[in-house]
Write a protein that binds this DNA or RNA. Structure first.
Lengths: 200, 200
DNA sequence: CTACATCATTGACCTAGGTCAATGCTCGCA
DNA sequence: TGCGAGCATTGACCTAGGTCAATGATGTAG
């Protein structure tokens, strides 16, 4: 695949990510493409650094990242980003606050990046952009609300089973201790949960 | 207080609820007021019924409600609505799906109600309305994300302490078993948590 | 005033998950 | 080829929270 084919394929993905929330007309999409910057983040590198500047929204076309908060030296997985998808510490980004967690590449990643200011420009430029922003936010809510529900009323075993069912590919590619922390349990517990499930 | 004073006071509250997310200009606010309907929901009555029609967004100026999901006969508190605030089963409302939980008045409540269709009209009518919708959604995200974080990494005792710190008035007015369910623990556990805290 | 309903508390016991420490496994590297 | 580093697993034990049942408190209708 040559470079312009690659870019075309990438742009199709960028558009698909947006379309997932709302069909995007060509004019709005062109405005997005005109503002993004292409970057690569190598495995192990940070895209966003906890406590640091937090003014970038990524559209990841390739790779896998993890949102991780360090508190008193231990490592709390907040979320995973599995391409193609948006990548950002959403809350801090929107409130113009330092990132509450780091976002680290678990594999080599390729992203198209929009800055906060460019995003605001897009919003003021077009009603469609504004609406897209709203629909993205509304999509995030649906995901997070279900997550709360699951924490409130499901056991760790159920949460693990749901995770496997929803993101089967993810489990293969992420070290188990990160999955454990994402589920809110220790690595030892997750190991036992898996042992129990494979027995039954 | 006579009736027109009451309405003026209510409208100020409706405006304050919206302003909490974004300053609302007079024109946009007038458009909101022109579309809302005033209703009262008596203590014990439902505003939204689980599995039923879910096309109303309330702005509550007075009272207290609880979002409650019934699963296999037991009662799962999803959230509280403490006036002045928006009242809705947000996810289903946005996705035009039946309500995933009921919303029941814990006290006599007074609300101004907007239908889904009226809200969409507001959005298409005004870019400011569209933006307001986005900022409301973004505000909801901040709340829910913090809730997930707390479930993932805090103990039940910590979650209770945070709840008391954040909504001290709520604890006084809500039966303890509902608070327990909101925290994701049994009433017995919450009782012990409170006993332990008052001892120390 | 009584009687019942509705919650809150307490106790005895159980289970899921946490903690700590030892043992295995795998893979990159010398 | 063997050695470490970094995970995963397993065991022994501990603790938070669940379950079930009894006992109190409070409020409300008759």
């Amino acid at each position: 695949m040559n470079s312009s084919e690659q870019i075309a394929r990438d742009h199709a993905l960028v558009r698909a990510v947006h379309d997932a929330f709302m069909p995007v007309d060509d004019k709005t999409f062109q405005a997005i493409v005109d503002h993004v910057t292409y970057i690569e983040v190598a495995k192990g590198q940070e895209f966003i650094s906890q406590g640091g500047l937090n003014d970038r929204l990524g559209v990841m076309v390739d790779g896998l990242m993890r949102g991780v908060e360090l508190i008193d030296g231990d490592d709390h997985t907040q979320m995973f980003f599995d391409s193609p998808c948006f990548v950002t510490e959403y809350v801090g980004f929107l409130q113009r606050k330092p990132a509450s967690f780091s976002i680290v590449a678990l594999e080599d990643c390729r992203l198209y990046v929009l800055t906060y200011d460019d995003l605001q420009k897009l919003y003021s430029m077009s009603k469609t952009g504004e609406r897209l922003g709203r629909m993205i936010a509304e999509g995030v809510i649906a995901t997070v609300v279900e997550e709360v529900r699951s924490f409130r009323f499901d056991s760790a075993t159920e949460r693990y089973e749901k995770l496997v069912a929803t993101f089967p590919r993810l489990i293969q590619r992420v070290p188990q201790y990160m999955v454990a922390s994402y589920l809110g349990v220790t690595p030892e517990s997750l190991s036992r949960i898996r042992a129990k499930l494979s027995r039954s």
